[in-house]
Design a protein around this nucleic acid. Structure first.
Lengths: 220, 220
DNA sequence: TAATAAAAAATATCATATATTCTTGCGAAT
DNA sequence: ATTCGCAAGAATATATGATATTTTTTATTA
């Protein structure tokens, strides 16, 4: 989710991934090479590199000889993603709380502060900055587990989180004050090194979010 | 790890991935496009698609504007991979034991039987079929967790397992009779629906394998 | 209506052109 | 003499448009 990319390939990668996560490209949509060529101003080969990358990350479905599709959504898939997020994020959180140093605490305080600020704005009805809000949410959760001592785990979690995020953006609703409180609980528990409490809060946070999103999906 | 692929792209993907896992392409090696073009008889564009795929799966390292490298190995990375495998595989095993039906049991019995047969050959000193042995090992572990009801989890686990496998192939040693016994313990516990015992056996199995591989790596 | 053949569209692959990075050799300054 | 900086050339990666193959659609006939 960065901005300036030196190479056409990485820039289109960022853009397409962003469009999939934030709904610019709808679930299940056919990704015709010609169409993408116009929309993203990149050659077919470059597009194919990008789509292959996104396919192995699971944002795109690749059908041999028949092209690419935006990964469809389903209640089952969302449930799997959420369970996986609980598994990975809780495990990472535990290690992170055990190993986190002063830097970790500093980053965490900063991330929570930024998140809290924008959450207040959201509660006041300023819905314009939804993407920024979600980025700060992302950064807060990332900050929590940053000290887990596993690049592999962090990278896996990042991908899963993005997939979860797509579902949240899909239903365009949020849980308001409840989620704010949950973030605060996690934050306090993490700083107090209360592993059990932090993990429980995180699991609840994700589970409630899952149910909320599932319910909203049923409406569609 | 399949054989006949209809398309050049997927066939080179399989081949390069195989060569990385089984040591045909050494850790850290530079993957020059020209060289690969000769070796795998595919065009640069096709190769770039493949390398991008492998990069996002973590078998290849992509350095912007500076090409591709086989992912280096390290004790830290192996430890991370092993921990991740424990986390994912144990979780999947628990659900699988809870949900597995007759089909699951059938596949599991078959997979264990095949594995056991080849393990006996290995113990007798027939080291020629190392790749086949590892494939049956793969299939057995896969069979254990097959009923976990999460495609996302199975797919993630598959990738992690392959990364773990590369380290095993790297050191070219195996733990012999101990590992055979551990497989049997897991197998019996799973069929008896003894979740705790199966999970414990699995975790031990992976942890001992990790220590064994770490020790062998230190020799290099 | 079903089967089949021709036409159109889309994908997969390739060879080539462009841009970037890396290497090497030279000269100036310490 | 050695190190540092800088240019020119070589090597390499990135990006594109053209071609070959496959799939999908449309039209035709039994």
């Amino acid at each position: 989710m960065s901005q300036t990319a030196p190479t056409v390939g990485s820039s289109t990668y960022e853009r397409i991934k962003h469009d999939i996560i934030f709904g610019g490209l709808e679930p299940g949509a056919k990704l015709k090479l010609d169409g993408l060529r116009d929309r993203y101003e990149a050659s077919v080969s470059t597009l194919r590199e990008t789509l292959n990358r996104l396919a192995s990350e699971g944002f795109v479905q690749a059908a041999e000889q028949r092209g690419f599709f935006v990964r469809p959504v389903s209640a089952e898939d969302l449930t799997e993603i959420a369970e996986l997020r609980i598994l990975l994020e809780c495990s990472a959180l535990e290690t992170s709380i055990a190993c986190g140093d002063a830097d970790w605490e500093g980053n965490l305080v900063a991330a929570h502060h930024k998140l809290h600020l924008i959450e207040q704005k959201m509660l006041d009805g300023d819905v314009a900055q939804k993407e920024l809000w979600k980025r700060y949410d992302w950064e807060f959760h990332q900050a929590l587990i940053q000290a887990c001592n596993s690049q592999n785990l962090l990278s896996l979690h990042g991908t899963i989180f993005d997939k979860y995020l797509r579902y949240q953006m899909l239903v365009l609703t949020n849980r308001g004050a409840d989620a704010v409180l949950e973030h605060k609980t996690m934050f306090d528990a993490a700083l107090a090194r209360d592993t059990a409490k932090a993990k429980a809060a995180l699991e609840t946070h994700i589970r409630l979010g899952l149910e909320h999103t599932l319910a909203a999906m049923a409406e569609l």
